[in-house]
Amino acid sequence: MSTIKLTVNGKAVSVEVEDRTLLVHLLRETLNLTGTHVGCDTSQCGACVVHIDGQAVKSCTVLAGQAAGANVTTIEGISKGDELHPMQAAFRDNHGLQCGYCTPGMIMSSIDIVNRHGGKLDEETVRHELEGNICRCTGYHNIVKSVLDAAGRMKVAQAAE
C-alpha cells in the first residue's frame, strides 16, 4: 500500500491504495468518478482516456503511483458548472454519441486533438488521430463531425478569452 497525492479535477486528493492499482481504478473505485470507463484490457479502446498534465492518456495503462503529483482531469471536470465544454456541446449537437460508453474517452481524446492541432484540422487528420478510441455505435461519422465542429467552437472560445 502507498499513499498517493495528486490533483483531480482541480481538487487535491490523498489516497491509500495498493501499488498495483491502476489510475482508472483509483478514479472509479476510490474517488467514485465513474465517468471514466473500461472497455478493454489491452490498452486499445480508449474508453478510459483522461488528461494527465494536459495530455490525453489511457488511465488503464498508468499505475496510480505514476500519476502521483500530477494534475488529472476527467470527463467530470471539463464543464464549468452548467456550461458544457465546447467539445461536450458539439458531441450532443452533432449526435456524436449513442450508448455513451466510449463517449467520455472520445471527448477527452478529442479535446487533446484540437489542443494539438488548433484550427488546422480536416476529416482525414481527425480520423487518424482517433485511432486510439473505439466506438461500436456511431460508425465514427458523427464523432468526426463533432470534433471538427468543436475545433471551430474552441477557436472562437479561445479568441474570446
Partner: peptide, 20 residues
Amino acid sequence: VRKEDRRFITGRGRYVDDIK
C-alpha cells in the same frame, strides 16, 4: 438533440459497473 445526452457527455451515465 437527445434528451439523454447530457448525462453521457458529463460522465453521469449510470452503467451497472458504476453501481455500488
